[in-house]
Amino acid sequence: MLRSRREGMPHWPLHVVLVGFTLFTIYPILWVLTIAFSGNQSLAIATLPEAPTVMDRLRAITPWPETWSFSNFVSVMTDQPFAKWMFNSVVVALGTTVLGVFLACTAAYAFSRFKFPGQRTGLMAFLVSQMFPGTLMLIPLYIILVQWLGLGSSRLGLIIVYATTSIPFSVWMLKGYFDTIPKDLEEAALMEGASVGRIFWTIILPLAKPAVAVTALFSFMTAWNEFILAATFMDQEEMYTAPVGLRFFVGGFSQQWGYFAAGSIIVSVPVVFLFLYLQKYLVSGLTAGSVKG
């Protein structure tokens, strides 16, 4: 079973490596789970009895709560309008995904299929915009979005900001992918009198599904995890997104790590499922774009 029939090389060393790495990977996540299910609020630090035995040490490093309790989850969901915040997050993240992917698709298609002056510069501009550190961006963004555009305290404002921040990566991804799609199909369609728009929607997009899925995932996560802009732009509690709600538990003088961990898990679950659902695209979408020919 663990032996590859064809080559005769044993698989078990590979499994050892994989299991090792998997443990390394999930260990911190198990701590998050432990804290969430412990019912306590402290960031678990393992302390030891006097003259610790090896077993004691082992217990101290095992991420397993001493008692299981759902109280953290219950408190998170009931003490504040967390469900409402999750809903806001869903709306904002989906809106960002739709808008971001749409804008990125059209731009990337143009960069890939048309030849026009400013093409290289434009593409470069998209990449370059990723390089300016965002430490001083908050106030200019606030001025533009809230003072000039009047989109304070609205989900639309957040969607626009998140979508634009996710565009550069998406454009690069999609352009690479579009480049690999042979042009024969479009030419044939053009001969039959189809418009460029039609070609784009009915031929290119379906073919680029994996890359679109990946950019959608990225846009979604950009919006899903962002906290500081959401907290700054929203002036009503019922308009907060889930990450904003999460940050109530930490920061300032007292930290409620139990709530925070439980909230983090609630917030992560949709993303993890999205990852699982999009897995098959993830692998091909991220790379096929750059593997030319």
């Binding site: 804008l103 990125a104 059209t106 731009a107 298609y109 143009a110 960069f111 048309f114 434009g122 501009a125 998209f126 915009s129 963004l141 533009i144 979005l145 626009i160 900001v161 979508a163 634009t164 921040t165 565009i167 550069p168 454009v171």
Partner: peptide, 12 residues
């Protein structure tokens, strides 16, 4: 095709 994304980028 590029304009919508470009406008967003320019402004924000």
């Amino acid at each position: 095709y590029i304009a919508p994304a470009m406008v967003g980028m320019l402004v924000l």
